[in-house]
Amino acid sequence: MKAEIVEKPAMLLVGFNFFGDPFRSYSGWSEENEIGRLWKRWMAYLENVQPDLRHVSTPDAMVELHVYHAETLQTGEFEVFAGIEVTQLEATSPEVVVKCLPASRYAVFTLAGQEITADWPWIMDTEWLPALGLHRRPTFTFQRYDARFKGMDALEASELDVYVPLED
């Protein structure tokens, strides 16, 4: 696992989301759980509508954002958003959701191979961040998937970056 601290300006994301327990119907690392279905919906939308989606900042990079709401700690339900970063907003279809992430300092952890499916959020909270003397804002995290991520069936050859917003 590699780590670095970066400053990022405010980010604009467009994509699809859902709120709930993503494992309600299926628990595995499979496209059949709610997160897998979300990605399927979003990728199908991108394939069909992307020509209308202008101002995409990095077309080869996708973002999976996890947002903790007020009831998340009680019920385990949270918001998952799958989307793409854009440089400015434009009129989009009603099903598209817009997320504005504030400018922030982030810890960026690069996960490789089996680290991707391990319980890295626990390791991050109990080992990585304390070792760096950092505290995260418990509001959201996002994972950035680019050309280095080859898919769940090619995990050993894959990498992805996890962005964790830090307390000032």
Binding site: D21, P22, F23, R24, S27, G28, N33, H66, T72, L73, Q74, T75, G76, F78, D119, W120, P121, W122, D125, T126
Partner: peptide, 26 residues
């Protein structure tokens, strides 16, 4: 649920996934 996860040293996300896989309940 967050306290359940912490009690067994899992993150909330990983706990929800693992608990469902093990018990078939959220």
């Amino acid at each position: 649920v967050a306290e359940m996860a912490a009690a067994v040293a899992y993150s909330l996300y990983h706990f929800c996934r693992t608990f469902k896989a093990a018990t078939q309940f959220t």
